Deep mutational scan, measured.
Amino acid sequence: MAAGGDHGSPDSYRSPLASRYASPEMCFVFSDRYKFRTWRQLWLWLAEAEQTLGLPITDEQIQEMKSNLENIDFKMAAEEEKRLRHDVMAHVHTFGHCCPKAAGIIHLGATSCYVGDNTDLIILRNALDLLLPKLARVISRLADFAKERASLPTLGFTHFQPAQLTTVGKRCCLWIQDLCMDLQNLKRVRDDLRFRGVKGTTGTQASFLQLFEGDDHKVEQLDKMVTEKAGFKRAFIITGQTYTRKVDIEVLSVLASLGASVHKICTDIRLLANLKEMEEPFEKQQIGSSAMPYKRNPMRSERCCSLARHLMTLVMDPLQTASVQWFERTLDDSANRRICLAEAFLTADTILNTLQNISEGLVVYPKVIERRIRQELPFMATENIIMAMVKAGGSRQDCHEKIRVLSQQAASVVKQEGGDNDLIERIQVDAYFSPIHSQLDHLLDPSSFTGRASQQVQRFLEEEVYPLLKPYESVMKVKAELCL
């Protein structure tokens, strides 16, 4: 049975990233139509530049190519590739079939990587351009969430054990800070992308030097003109047959890092959902379990974690691919890159769409948070109580021993009897502590235990987050809708 299948058929496997999760716009960027249309555009740009620099290419040939950029006979191309065992030459023939007058000058002087690699770089750039505003929107939604809850005390956790208090907004800023680093890295790697350009079979530009009869300047002009037509500021000066596969490492490393950030955020949300302090959106008709109707599973956060793990592992592909590119190139890269580049971007696209949807509907339960604080705060307040007693004339050592005994009794009630923490009640009825009984409410005010959390939130948002989001103001209103 021949390899390949009808990918629109229910009898043929289709990647869930495309069929179930990723956005239509990201799927289109990695589609065959987008790819092969870009090949034709690159052939047109090459012909236009070659004509401008004096090669015998007519206006009629150029116009014929322009008129057929979208006229792609995919069936013919597939048949040609089956016959020739070469995808680029299959599309040269297919393009030439609908451009008979231009057929002889299509791909003039070029090698397969002229269309293959340059198209990949265009796709990487455009895919990054799709991700950047999506990530900015996630940051914006979380920034709104953090600002609104900047002063809401909550129990902090280290080692997932109760620690000092923080605020809900401050905790959210930990998430935002990681995503801001990801946004900066995505922008950097996007701006650092260079075009492969017009380089020939081993990167020496020998074929173009021959076409222009040894004119170095025209060869350099050709490279520059096509690079500018493709919208790049610069091209690699040095290439082998391909652009260095280190570029793929750079791009997928940034995406993998984004995956790590999203995994951490969504894990926190899942843990908070278990504590009943916070939940992701839950639709009115949504079913959490087929057997347990009360369940409210954090399905979206779980999906993000599941896909983020996949995204983090994909960076190993370009690392290994770059390491086995012998001399000017081997074909070890080809099949692998067809999979890992598309999957990385479709996965990143999915987790950003999902995280935006989550961040637009996060639900906080202040009463649950308050109750958990009441359970733990008495123990945390013991040092403040000791200091207040010393100020009232008591002995630190005597007070410490009193607190120690009462704390152990209260802990026994919590752990052995399943009761509430009654340390404060014990202190309130103990005559030894009568000098500070009137101060206990103040000493137990949760806001006095959150330090500068709310001020940190305000400063972080104003100095770091809002300036970073400013270039994306025009796209901030787009909502994230999930079908599944």
Rank of each mutant, 00 (worst) to 15 (best):
A2P: 09
A3H: 13
S9C: 14
P10C: 14
D11G: 09
Y13W: 14
R14E: 15
S19Y: 11
Y21E: 00
P24Y: 14
C27D: 15
F28M: 11
S31N: 15
D32F: 11
D32E: 14
D32K: 10
R37I: 15
Q41C: 15
L42G: 00
W43M: 06
W45F: 13
W45H: 12
E50G: 09
I57C: 06
I57F: 07
D59A: 11
D59I: 09
Q61D: 14
E64Q: 13
E64K: 08
K66L: 09
L69I: 14
N71F: 10
N71L: 11
I72R: 05
M76R: 13
A77Q: 14
A77T: 14
A78I: 09
E79H: 10
E79T: 14
K82N: 12
R83N: 13
R83M: 10
L84K: 11
V88E: 01
M89T: 02
A90V: 12
H97L: 13
I106S: 05
I106P: 00
H107N: 00
L108M: 13
G109I: 00
G109H: 02
A110S: 08
A110M: 05
T111S: 12
G116A: 14
T119N: 02
D120M: 06
L121T: 10
L121S: 08
L130S: 12
L130N: 09
L131G: 07
L131P: 03
L132N: 15
L135M: 15
A136C: 13
R141F: 12
A143E: 02
D144H: 13
A146N: 05
E148F: 11
S151C: 09
S151P: 08
S151L: 12
L152N: 08
P153L: 01
P153K: 03
T154H: 06
T158R: 00
H159Q: 02
F160V: 03
Q161A: 04
K170Q: 05
K170H: 13
R171E: 01
C173F: 01
L179E: 01
L179N: 02
D182H: 00
Q184C: 08
L186C: 15
K187W: 09
R188N: 08
V189S: 13
L193H: 02
L193Y: 07
R194N: 06
R194P: 10
T201D: 03
A206V: 09
S207K: 01
Q210M: 10
F212R: 03
G214R: 12
V219A: 06
E220G: 09
Q221M: 15
V226T: 08
E228Y: 13
E228M: 12
K229V: 04
A230Y: 03
K233Y: 06
A235M: 13
D248S: 00
V251P: 03
V254P: 09
S257M: 08
A260V: 04
V262M: 08
V262T: 15
H263G: 07
T267G: 13
D268L: 01
D268M: 05
D268K: 01
L271H: 09
A273E: 10
N274R: 03
L275V: 10
K276G: 08
E277Q: 05
E277S: 03
M278Y: 06
M278R: 01
E280A: 03
E283P: 01
Q285G: 14
Q286R: 01
Q286N: 01
I287G: 01
M292P: 03
Y294W: 04
Y294D: 01
R296W: 07
N297I: 01
P298R: 01
M299W: 00
C304S: 09
S306W: 01
L311F: 02
L314M: 13
V315K: 03
D317A: 08
P318D: 02
L319H: 03
Q320A: 09
S323C: 12
W326G: 04
R329L: 03
T330L: 02
L331W: 02
L331R: 01
D332N: 00
D333A: 02
D333V: 02
R337N: 00
R337K: 12
L341Y: 13
E343K: 12
A344E: 02
F345I: 09
F345T: 11
L346E: 08
A348R: 02
T350D: 14
I351N: 01
I351H: 05
L352V: 10
L355F: 12
Q356E: 10
Q356Y: 11
G361A: 15
L362M: 14
L362R: 03
V363Q: 08
V364N: 04
Y365D: 02
E370I: 13
R374I: 01
Q375D: 05
Q375I: 06
L377P: 00
P378H: 00
I385K: 03
I385W: 03
M387I: 05
A388S: 07
A388W: 06
A392S: 10
G393D: 09
G394S: 12
Q397E: 06
D398S: 11
E401L: 08
K402I: 07
R404G: 08
S407N: 04
Q408F: 08
Q408I: 09
Q409V: 09
Q409F: 06
A410P: 01
A411H: 02
K415M: 07
K415C: 07
E417K: 10
N421M: 09
D422I: 09
R426G: 08
I427H: 05
V429L: 13
D430T: 11
Y432K: 06
Y432F: 13
F433I: 05
S434W: 11
S434H: 08
P435D: 09
I436C: 05
Q439K: 10
Q439A: 15
D445A: 15
P446N: 04
P446L: 03
S447T: 12
G451M: 01
R452D: 01
A453E: 03
A453S: 13
Q455K: 14
Q456W: 00
Q456R: 03
Q456E: 02
V457G: 03
Q458K: 14
Q458G: 13
E463F: 13
E464G: 09
V465C: 14
V465I: 15
Y466L: 14
P467R: 08
L469T: 15
L469R: 04
K470V: 10
K470R: 13
P471V: 15
V475W: 14
M476E: 15
K477M: 15
K477R: 14
L482K: 05
